[in-house]
Nucleic acid binder design. Sequence first.
DNA 1: AGTTACCTTTACGTTAACGTCAACTTGGGT
DNA 2: ACCCAAGTTGACGTTAACGTAAAGGTAACT
Lengths: 131, 131
Amino acid sequence: MNGMTKTRTYSISDLAREFDVTTRTIRFYEEAGMLLPERNGQTRIYTDEDRVKLKLILRGKRLGFSLAESRELIEMYDPTSDNLKQLHALRAKIQQSREALQQQLTDIQLMQTELDAAEERCLEAMRELES
Amino acid sequence: MNGMTKTRTYSISDLAREFDVTTRTIRFYEEAGMLLPERNGQTRIYTDEDRVKLKLILRGKRLGFSLAESRELIEMYDPTSDNLKQLHALRAKIQQSREALQQQLTDIQLMQTELDAAEERCLEAMRELES
DNA sequence: AGTTACCTTTACGTTAACGTCAACTTGGGT
DNA sequence: ACCCAAGTTGACGTTAACGTAAAGGTAACT
């Protein structure tokens, strides 16, 4: 009785294929304490929850986050804390993350306008060659 | 007669202070061929152009780009090319960069909504403690 | 019984992006 | 003349994030 979570499982290469990473990478994330799959004997068995975590890690990676940073983001996921002070700390972290993301947004927008300008110059150079 | 570019100059530690990096980092970017400051004897002298390049490198870094990627972005800056084929290649690169940035935008938005949810759960947990 | 396809652990190798000395030189104050 | 701050060039060290064998286990075909 866990809220109807689809309890599918995945092998390591299932996930590797789906997210286009190597199995080594996935095992590495486990070494780093980011994933804790169950086992059938030796063999790792991944649940949907593991899969979500992996997805979060890789999303973080695309944004240039280190594993440590992604770990923090993932830990924000469940406020298991029963301690008010820790909850305040968690909110502070969430706020920090927001600000970091905001900076990235700004950076992306700047880059986009610069790409616009770059393309404009490029097109201009092409027009001159055709003249 | 170069379009009224302010021709200020900077020492290496001027830039280091301004952008909060070490001088080693700046020299490293030069080793990597990203900066080519003039010299007064031994001493490096940075122009506004160098400063802009450094700014671009660091912006790329905040977005998780490698130096190689930032180098490509910087090279898009002036279409010095007199060759039509190269200009087409340049446009293709620009387009690729656009798509990468678009992916990052999506990732950021997803993260932001997840941060919203995380904060909501956090606040919820805090309310329960006060009950 | 043999091969194939995955899975495992252990362990050393690699690359990027710097950090960290060490051993200079150089221009400016006192 | 002496010192100090800021600059320089090597050159080796470090960390993160995997890559890359090596050596072996296991279940399923054929």
